[in-house]
């Protein structure tokens, strides 16, 4: 029951998101607007009810399974992009390398004080 009640909450916020997107013609998806509305609601009421926590934990645990059907398509669109595979692979591999390097550098630069404090060291597994 807790799970179902939480699920209904999530659906409710997605519907609210849909209404907001349609009404203001925002360039975001319905679910994305629902996420933001739920976050605002949680921050305002400062109380996370148990059913929402249960349902969200259950759904987030299944994210990998839910995105899998979309991934299957990769094996079927190869022809569509046959001429661009070099560009795609280079963009993904080189682009990811550069962005990882940039993020590490930026974070290191902006939080230097926190970096060396001993309390943040945790035993390595």
């Amino acid at each position: 029951m807790t799970l179902l009640r939480g699920f209904l909450w999530l659906l409710g916020f997605q519907l609210l998101g849909q209404a907001a997107v349609e009404w203001l013609s925002l360039p975001v998806s319905h679910a994305m607007a629902g996420l933001l509305l739920l976050l605002v609601w949680l921050l305002v009421t400062r109380r996370l009810n148990e059913s929402v926590a249960t349902a969200s934990q259950a759904l987030i645990g299944q994210l990998a399974m839910l995105i899998m059907p979309g991934v299957v398509g990769v094996f079927f669109v190869i022809d569509e992009f046959a001429g661009h595979w070099t560009a795609v692979m280079l963009a993904l591999v080189l682009g990811t390398f550069l962005s990882v390097l940039t993020t590490l550098w930026l974070m290191q630069r902006f939080m230097p004080g926190d970096l060396v404090s001993s309390e943040t060291q945790e035993p390595r597994p």
């Binding site: 999530l10 679910a31 949680l42 969200s56 934990q57 987030i60 994210l63």
Partner: peptide, 8 residues
């Protein structure tokens, strides 16, 4: 709903 759940 899984996307909405990421707010938690």
């Amino acid at each position: 709903p899984a996307t909405v759940a990421l707010a938690v």
